[in-house]
Design a protein around this nucleic acid. Structure first.
Length: 258
DNA sequence: CGGCATGTTTCGCC
DNA sequence: AGGCGAAACATGCC
């Protein structure tokens, strides 16, 4: 589930934590840097923000970073802003918790911030250098994308998923953007025209805010059911194609994505 | 049981 | 040096 859109939704929800003091921090040491708890204990939260797919909690003692991997999710004050999960049939077992963070003021006895991640591909970081991340997909400009794909020869979808090229896009959003841009996912970057680049940026600006408002990366035209069935294209009714491109499942319409 | 999964990191090869 | 592409990672689900 977690792409940049989910990180944005959780980040917005966690704004309620700003100004609070961390009174207790617990984490799964297998996914956290050593010393994380000691550093953050007693820290005051100054801001909660997002860079690409990463949620960042700024404190007066350091910045905590939350990477969600394939299956990470967040709960704030016992409330999950994204309740329905595509994965794990909604299961949320305590042993999958990777972070529990209590604060003052508190909201009942529950952690103010909790990350749960069944597959444990997610990570926690402290004062991580994120300078390698490219421009954010939600505010992407034509110049930025043109610069990101310049001198690159890989498939456009693969580059859209490269966080150092564009930050925030995951497999679902990349397919959605290309569907609306009318660009086939296997097209090579060096054969895209300026008009193609503009179409991709326009699709980002049009689709990503809509999906964000609708609930995230699973709320596009290519929702999980459509992806699985690979039935008719939601735009023109042609049969969707489902294939692996550079190790990721791509769903696209061979009729209008050229 | 085999295969697949919304992500990143690592490694060999240009 | 840095891009490309495949494999590995960890674990649950269909």
């Amino acid at each position: 589930m977690p792409e940049g859109l989910e990180a944005e939704i959780w980040t917005r929800d966690a704004q309620s934590l700003v100004g609070r003091t961390m009174t207790d921090v617990w984490c799964d040491d297998r996914v956290a840097p050593s010393g994380l708890r000691q550093v953050l204990d007693g820290a005051v939260i100054g801001a909660v923000r997002r860079r690409g797919k990463v949620m960042l909690v700024d404190t007066d003692q350091g910045t905590l970073g939350l990477h969600f991997g394939m299956t990470g999710r967040v709960e704030v004050d016992g409330h999950a802003p994204i309740g329905r999960l595509e994965y794990a049939s909604g299961a949320d077992r305590p042993e999958w918790d990777r972070l529990r963070l209590w604060t003052i003021p508190a909201h009942g006895g529950r952690p103010a911030l909790r990350m749960n991640d069944p597959r444990r591909l997610g990570r926690l970081s402290l004062d991580e250098d994120l300078c390698h991340l490219g421009p954010d997909a939600l505010s992407l400009t034509t110049d930025e994308l043109a610069a990101a794909i310049a001198r690159r020869t890989a498939r456009i979808k693969t580059v859209l998923l490269d966080q150092s090229a564009v930050a925030g896009l995951g497999n679902l959003c990349a397919d959605e953007v290309l569907l609306h841009a009318g660009i086939a996912p296997h097209r090579r970057c060096d054969e895209l025209t300026p008009a193609d680049v503009s179409e991709i940026v326009a699709a980002c600006r049009e689709r990503l805010p809509l999906m964000l408002g609708a609930g995230g990366s699973t709320c596009g035209d290519l929702d999980p059911a459509v992806r699985k069935e690979a039935g008719p294209c939601p735009r023109d009714g042609a049969d969707l194609r489902r294939e692996s491109i550079d190790g990721r499942t791509a769903v696209w319409c061979p009729a209008h994505q050229v």
